[in-house]
Design a protein around this nucleic acid. Structure first.
Lengths: 205, 205
DNA sequence: TACCTTTACTAACGCTGTTAGGAAAAAATA
DNA sequence: TATTTTTTCCTAACAGCGTTAGTAAAGGTA
């Protein structure tokens, strides 16, 4: 008699409906508004039932976190496998990464812990343009000095800023283990200098 | 008679004490635990007093957001002004940026909206290493093909990943305006390709 | 039918941001 | 100085949150 099987099946159905409802809420109103009570309401069960399937709210988020990285990995692999040469593969990976992030903002935000309280900002902070200005003026100067006069300063500024911010934020989210016998700080400053070197070469042509 | 002046001074004192208390809480236990009640408790006033000085919690965070960008801008300017040549200035800026971020984690996290619910992770997600693997294998292949055999794949992987993530997350936080007559998407994909090109050059030596 | 296990509920605890309304203190006026 | 007005500040509440203890009902077993 398949009683236990049916029970297991029903259990899984409820679990899936929790994830489905959660995703709907996140999709509609963002991670910040996701709550256990809303999920319970959506699946037409009481609150403690949710806790029979997930230890706590974080466990639900973890599930999506995993899904997100799985999906991203798959997309990168797909993009890579479309081309035979590694050089072209790398660009395809970059584009695929970009498309994933913007085609699945909810996933990406969760995966990298984006989306804190004051996130509307960035645009509305006057101090931001002042700090960008420091980078801008330096790069402007470099273009003036170099041979690559057609280089677009804004483009280069964004590239430079992005690189550093990416490096920083990845390291702020997870404490990297030691690589190559270097401390994480040494390792990352090596990346920083390596990148700056390549960046300068791109400006000097 | 300086009654209004004294009142204004006292008002400012309370306002400052709110910010001071808030900063202490954030420094001790992180942004996630900051609450109006805790602030009120720390300044030995009741909750509504806080609302006499800040419209809401976000206004307090905005204040620190501004401070953060101001401080970052100043640090970058300092670093820049220590050197005469733009090329060296740029590296100094990169290092100063890094040092600011890790010397002022609280500011940086707020400024870039880092620090969501499931942020312990990144390390504990098995799917992450799978997705990194796709990038790793491609770069490994490129090093094998190129002339720069001593290039460190891990270093390059982190550099590549950081660049894309930085670009993505900055664009997810704020919708960039159109630059150079390109849509933001076009603009950023140009950066992406430009960066990939330079990156490849660095691998080929 | 009597028993036991599973399932799902109500109700609570201690938090959160935010605000309405009233008491007390300070200042201004008479 | 006494009275009135204004400012200051607090208590208490609303509505929401994650989480859990304790209980009633339903399902399966003997």
């Amino acid at each position: 008699m398949g009683i236990v099987e049916r029970k297991e099946r029903q259990r899984k159905e409820v679990r899936d409906s929790i994830l489905h409802a959660a995703w709907q809420i996140v999709h509609d109103d963002g991670w910040q508004t996701l709550s256990i009570r809303k999920i319970a309401d959506a699946i037409e069960y009481s609150v403690p039932v949710v806790y029979d399937h997930f230890e706590n709210k974080e466990a639900i988020l973890s599930e999506f976190n995993r899904q997100g990285f799985k999906l991203l990995g798959d997309r990168l692999k797909e993009a890579k496998d479309k081309h035979p040469k590694a050089a072209i593969q790398l660009e395809a990976i970059a584009i695929a990464y970009w498309d994933f992030a913007f085609g699945n903002k909810e996933y990406y935000q969760l995966m990298y812990g984006l989306g804190m309280p004051t996130c509307e900002s960035l645009n509305s902070v006057p101090e931001l343009s002042a700090f960008i200005g420091v980078i801008y003026s330096t790069i402007e100067e470099l273009i003036k000095e170099g041979n690559n006069k057609t280089a677009e300063p804004w483009l280069k500024v964004h590239s430079f800023w992005s690189m550093i911010h990416g490096l920083v934020s990845i390291n702020l989210l997870s404490t990297q283990p030691a690589h190559l016998g270097l401390t994480p700080d040494e390792f990352n400053k090596t990346i920083l200098k390596d990148f700056t070197k390549g960046f300068l070469k791109g400006l000097a042509e």
